Amino acid sequence: MNVLQGIAAALTPLGLIWTAILLSVATFLHELAHYALARAQGVPVRSFSVGMGPVLLRRMWRGTEWRLSLLPIGGYVEIEGMAPEEGPGGQMRAPTQGFAALPALGKIAVLLAGPLMNLLLALGLMTMLFASQGMPAPDRARIESVNPGSRAEALGLRAGDVITAIDGRDIPDTLQRGGQTQAGWESLRLVLNEAGPHVFTVQRPGPAGVTTRQVRFDWQPTVNGARQLLGIRYGPDVQPVSVPAAFAASVSNTAEAVPQVLRAFGTLFGRFLTLDISRDENVSGPIGTAEIVSRAAALSPWALVQVAIMLNLSLAFFNLIPIPGLDGGRILLVLLGALKGRPLTFAQEQAINFAGFAFVMLLMLFVVVRDVSRFF
């Protein structure tokens, strides 16, 4: 009962609703892209389901049965020629029509459409976020608040002031700390750990424009064993950007995220193979995802947009992993068939797909178990 109470405390009804909405939209657009590329090449699509499990509503339209299913945890599209079909003797055989009859490039286009749709959705949401909310400048620290009666107030610092240089040196774009690359504005924390005289170059916006001044002070990080506080809360300086600049930054951020995501998935596979269920902040299961969405829903709509961006990027990259059963695995089989000059045999493809599907299911079960284990 304590485990269930812990899970219930981590989630909120609003968070669960938003989790279902975000996952359903991401999955719907993913499957819609598969559908559109198949239909564009003349391949029939038998059914398209929003959600999984028992069908609640169904309607035929343009040769496809559109379904609304009970569980809002994804969806699926049945494209003719992608699954084995029943032969005259009741035996399952390789399909010969529809998707199976497409050339290699046509098959890859259908398979690649889903992950690309999630990637484009993430880029679109990121561009909207940057264009409307601005972009953080890593080489500038903005003071968000000043504690009353603090040393910072005595120095004349105010909320809205922007620190552009420290001790005569510009704040770097990035800095290396603990083996990791971090934003340069965080170097302010390092400076406040150093005793001695310091100088902040501070810009202050006002009705007459931006004024710049030097703030000089002597600093002792500790006095009689007690840690001293300057009395400010600060973060990166957020600056407005144009839509083209926001899009360029979105592409750049996505490219920079690729190695991080690959490392996270690599760590997940390593822990899966060694059955290490210790918590990993970089990869979340369904409960962890719902918990993140619950926290975001309590903050602001823009926090939900950030979560939607990460969900779509994760779906895009995960589906491109060359594991049979995923889009990336199917693309790999198509490429292998093209290199051989003929498709894999039905038995070979079925065996590979079954092994890949089993691996993905076990991996998902592992993620769920690891998700729940932290509540014990």
Rank of each mutant, 00 (worst) to 15 (best):
residue 164 T to Y: 06
residue 35 Y to I: 08
residue 182 Q to Y: 11
residue 9 A to Y: 05
residue 271 R to W: 02
residue 187 S to W: 00
residue 112 L to K: 08
residue 270 G to E: 13
residue 372 V to K: 02
residue 352 I to Q: 06
residue 71 L to T: 12
residue 101 A to S: 15
residue 340 K to T: 12
residue 259 P to Y: 09
residue 75 G to C: 10
residue 55 V to D: 05
residue 317 F to D: 01
residue 117 M to A: 12
residue 256 E to A: 13
residue 318 F to L: 15
residue 56 L to A: 07
residue 79 I to G: 01
residue 224 N to Q: 13
residue 116 L to S: 09
residue 274 T to L: 12
residue 9 A to G: 03
residue 305 V to D: 03
residue 287 I to E: 05
residue 226 A to V: 15
residue 237 D to Q: 13
residue 301 P to G: 14
residue 231 G to E: 11
residue 32 L to I: 12
residue 336 L to F: 11
residue 207 P to W: 02
residue 366 F to V: 03
residue 226 A to P: 00
residue 277 I to G: 06
residue 132 S to K: 08
residue 73 I to H: 00
residue 50 V to H: 05
residue 351 A to Q: 13
residue 359 F to D: 03
residue 92 M to H: 07
residue 3 V to L: 09
residue 354 F to P: 02
residue 18 W to D: 06
residue 320 L to A: 02
residue 364 M to R: 08
residue 125 L to N: 04
residue 355 A to D: 05
residue 249 A to Q: 14
residue 213 R to L: 03
residue 350 Q to V: 14
residue 206 G to H: 04
residue 273 L to P: 03
residue 248 A to H: 12
residue 153 E to H: 07
residue 48 F to W: 06
residue 239 Q to C: 06
residue 269 F to L: 10
residue 71 L to K: 14
residue 16 L to D: 04
residue 350 Q to S: 15
residue 37 L to M: 15
residue 278 S to D: 01
residue 128 M to Q: 08
